[in-house]
Design a protein around this nucleic acid. Sequence first.
DNA 1: AATGGTGTACTATTAATATAGTACACCAAA
DNA 2: TTTGGTGTACTATATTAATAGTACACCATT
Lengths: 123, 123
Amino acid sequence: MTDGFNATQPIYLQLLQKVIIQIVRGDLKTGEKLPSVRELGAQFKVNPNTVQRAYAELERLAVVETRRGLGTFVTEDKACLNQLREQLKHEKIDTFIQDMKEMGFNAVEIIAGLSEHLNDKSN
Amino acid sequence: MTDGFNATQPIYLQLLQKVIIQIVRGDLKTGEKLPSVRELGAQFKVNPNTVQRAYAELERLAVVETRRGLGTFVTEDKACLNQLREQLKHEKIDTFIQDMKEMGFNAVEIIAGLSEHLNDKSN
DNA sequence: AATGGTGTACTATTAATATAGTACACCAAA
DNA sequence: TTTGGTGTACTATATTAATAGTACACCATT
């Protein structure tokens, strides 16, 4: 709609993924405070309600904890975050392989094509 | 909604992808007739209008041709289909690598994790 | 005690998707 | 020529996402 969002998926889900990526990368560390719903809403030119919906979902996933009147914080549970990172990695790889095989590519083609792309880019 | 569809993306787009996969796999061959909008609608328990929207988009992509009163057919242009297959492969690989790196995984981790998953499954 | 920033809840409106239903144009085959 | 299957177009309705606006509860700081 406004900025860097895919029109075919709810914004709150894309917002949720952006935050999760930041956590998995380590850009948002354990216990660190997230931007307020109003602040993040302003940053992405999106309604605060939409941000809140993403935050609520993040809390449901136990990735963040909210303290009324204080803000929303990344969970202190490092094991949970490590598990999240591993889980996301496996899911991503799994769906990738599944999709590729569904399109008729075999393991050799996948590895070959992947090596090409990895060589093209910077590590 | 009904059967095997993701609720976070329009059905007509998911339908479009299903057809494209069938074409790329070779299950739907050059010049072959697609199911009618009514037939496919019944098969997926979806409104014919939704199917038609997917078919219209497929025609815009030049992968199918529609002949009024006859039906919708896979394009005769084999070069176009080969190009489509290659394009989809590269796009899929590219977004996969991009996503993985965005989450903080490097080339080594990607290859390693991928090899594990490929060994788990049947080739 | 007062203030300001925070999460949260609620109503109302708009836009897009999916659906239902109907109708028409086109073409091959009987 | 008629029939049946096809794509296509149109109206109308229900649902969901996003937005706008308002209000309240909570808590650290002053």
